[in-house]
Amino acid sequence: MKHTLRALRAEAGRYCLEMRRYLMDSVASAFIIILVLVMMLKGMDWAASGMAASTARLTIASSYLAWVFAFRSIQAIALGVYDEVQKGTFEQLYLSPLGVVPILLTRAVLEFVFTLGLVTLVYLAADALAGLGFGSGFGQALGYILAALPGVWGLGLALAGVVLIAKKSGSLLAIVSYAIIGLAAVPGLPLGLMSFLPYSAGASAARAALAGSGGTPSWWPAFTLAAAFGWLAFGFLVWKSAEARARRLSLFGQY
């Protein structure tokens, strides 16, 4: 246990160090995320008016913020593995007695903490510039996002597995990172087929919380968590299968 904590602390230390050292990268990301959101909201104001505009604004803004969490989670896990395989450090990561999956999940948790600060900043800035008009359910919405994120981590693990065994998978990774905005926007509420997609149950509930419309059954948090951990388990299985293949074919150091 002591060794595990030390390894996780080392990972956290490296993450903070790189964040601090490449601060401009994070600042530029925050600026672009704010800019895109404000532009989308202004465009919505121009295209529609009244209740329709208000609903569309809410859907777009909440889906976009939910997507930022999902996007950065995928990047932390799958892009992290892609980078390390390309650079040649993945083999050393693999030699850690702790195992790769706990390290990747630590990265995802650290990324969540960072993204929480980023999204709060985006929320405040976009609200000041374009008036988001969210209700008081921001905290509750974040709770739903957090409950649903393990599902995205599962997707990240599955993608990381693909990255291990497929060469030149960078463009696939980029496309999937943007495609997950669909998961943040699909109507996962009320319960239906869409609710079982990764992340959609939590993102839909977060949207409802931000609209102040309530409407989530009392068992929804439990359902969101169960769906998320189901997808996490799926991602873990895909990762293990890809890892076994990569170990058989000597693919850890390919670039």
Binding site: K2, H3, T4, R6, A7, R9, A10, E11, G13, R14, L17, E18, R21, Y22, K87, G88, T89, E91, Q92, L93, L95, S96, P97, L98, I103, G253
Partner: peptide, 26 residues
């Protein structure tokens, strides 16, 4: 296994050493 490719180029020498030591439970 892969010489200089085995370390993080965006970290310092000491930072690399302490990071990999941590990953091995030190």
């Amino acid at each position: 296994l892969e010489g200089a490719r085995n370390v993080h180029w965006r970290l310092g020498a000491r930072e690399n050493m302490e990071y990999f030591a941590g990953l091995r439970g030190m």
